[in-house]
Design a protein around this nucleic acid. Sequence first.
DNA 1: GATATTGTTCGATTGGTTTCGAACAATATG
DNA 2: CATATTGTTCGAAACCAATCGAACAATATC
Lengths: 101, 101
Amino acid sequence: MRQYDHPAPETLAMTEVLRALSDPLRLAIVRRLDREGAQTCAALIGERPKSSMSHHFQVLRDAGVIHTRIEGVTHYNTVRRDVLDTRFPGLMDAILIARAD
Amino acid sequence: MRQYDHPAPETLAMTEVLRALSDPLRLAIVRRLDREGAQTCAALIGERPKSSMSHHFQVLRDAGVIHTRIEGVTHYNTVRRDVLDTRFPGLMDAILIARAD
DNA sequence: GATATTGTTCGATTGGTTTCGAACAATATG
DNA sequence: CATATTGTTCGAAACCAATCGAACAATATC
């Protein structure tokens, strides 16, 4: 059961995190993961075909915003709050709390 | 002495602000404006030709991140902290305070 | 082992962004 | 009014990002 490589906390770049979150669909994904906890990729499909969703999850993963745990055939995604909060204090709070898009 | 149109506070979009700040050069510009106060475009040239800098200032202005005041022939740029802090509380603090890039 | 499920990878298209030099506009100064 | 200064606009090139269908890989189930 192979797992993904996630970037180490120290290597997260502010600009990459911001870029990953600057897409409306990705921001919506992260907001939902934050509210509802771990979600599979499939649970969030509906807006786009799965190849598109897979792409966006990968962008978020590469930027260090989400963590993906593989269990069998399903991928559970979570926001890396601990890592993000340590490296960029207050950032995710500000982004996730905001009601404006 | 014509002035720019700046987007109204209510119309700022989180994703546009994040996108504007997701470029390393633009983030550096905003950090410097925040630390040193109003700066002309020219004061920040050095990394890129002025046409490139003009482009980045425009992206920041369109996203609502900076305000540009024209005085004679020079353009003074400032971060719209009041507007940004009202609409996205804590966001600029988190982005500007962070030491990581 | 055949089949279904979950998600990735590939390849192509489209559209947007960055970059920069050159020409331009507007104000200021000699 | 000629000239310098500040910054914009234009046009073209290069690059990057989003999108999606189709094929694929890996696990699970019958």
